[in-house]
């Protein structure tokens, strides 16, 4: 009988190089699934949020219900949200995506609406005076000016989505959450810590990436002094 190997896996250390190299593929697959779920959800939410925010901005009667419903959706705890969608989607990745879309929608609609409302009336009138039609006014004046607030919402929604994907482990589609869930049941410390740290890293990198995109898209917010001089 051979003695059990005395490496960090056998000792169940928190930090384990052998785990990182040995389970590289499992970790990579989990990261890819995590990213897919996050990106798909946030993109769908973005596509839905822009018209909703525009409708709430244009039609006064629409803003109450839109904000009310999204607030109610946001209050529902994530585990309950995923569970409520179970009869509709079954145990599938679509269930996790649907839940994440509903959460991201709230943050995006609120921020895009706040951005649109913050466009000064004088700016709007000036554009109209220059002969801008409603579509051109929206696309070339209102939406660009609403970009900083919208991007702030997008960053919060993305970071929240990265964190919430882990709850998807309850239906087996949780990206790195699956590894955390499995690691919990087997008391596999290295797996839980590695997956958790990767989760936080994904959130931070996504946030910084969106911040960089925001800076590229809104060059006028960077040089207030030069402009006023």
């Amino acid at each position: 009988m051979t003695a059990p190997p005395d490496d960090c896996l056998a000792r169940n250390d928190w930090i384990c190089g052998a785990y990182l190299t040995g389970r590289r593929h499992i970790l990579w697959d989990a990261v890819v699934q995590h990213l897919q779920l996050t990106v798909v959800s946030v993109l769908i939410a973005l596509v839905l949020a822009v018209p909703l925010a525009l409708a709430a901005r244009r039609r006064r009667w629409a803003s109450g219900p839109v904000l009310g419903i999204t607030t109610v959706l946001y209050t529902i705890p994530s585990l309950a949200m995923f569970s409520l969608l179970l009869p509709v989607y079954g145990l599938s990745a679509s269930l996790v995506v649907a839940g994440l879309v509903l959460y991201s929608l709230t943050l995006l609609v609120r921020n895009i609406l706040a951005g649109l409302r913050a466009v000064p009336e004088e700016t709007r009138q000036a554009a109209r005076g220059m002969g801008y039609g409603p579509i051109r006014l929206l696309l070339t004046v209102e939406l660009p000016l609403a970009l900083p607030a919208s991007m702030a919402g997008l960053r919060i929604a993305t970071v929240s989505a990265v964190s919430l994907v882990t709850i998807g482990a309850i239906v087996g589609h949780g990206g790195l959450g699956n590894l955390i869930y499995a690691g919990m049941n087997t008391f596999f410390k290295a797996q839980v810590l590695t997956a958790s740290v990767l989760c936080v890293i994904i959130a931070i990198v996504a946030d910084l990436l969106l911040l960089a995109i925001q800076r590229v898209l809104t060059p006028w917010t960077r040089r207030p002094r030069e402009r006023s001089a």
């Binding site: 970071v159 990265v162 959450g177 955390i180 810590l193």
Partner: peptide, 11 residues
């Protein structure tokens, strides 16, 4: 917001 609640609970 960036730290998953579930991960902290398991840790």
């Amino acid at each position: 917001r960036a730290i998953p609640t579930f991960a902290v609970l398991v840790l």
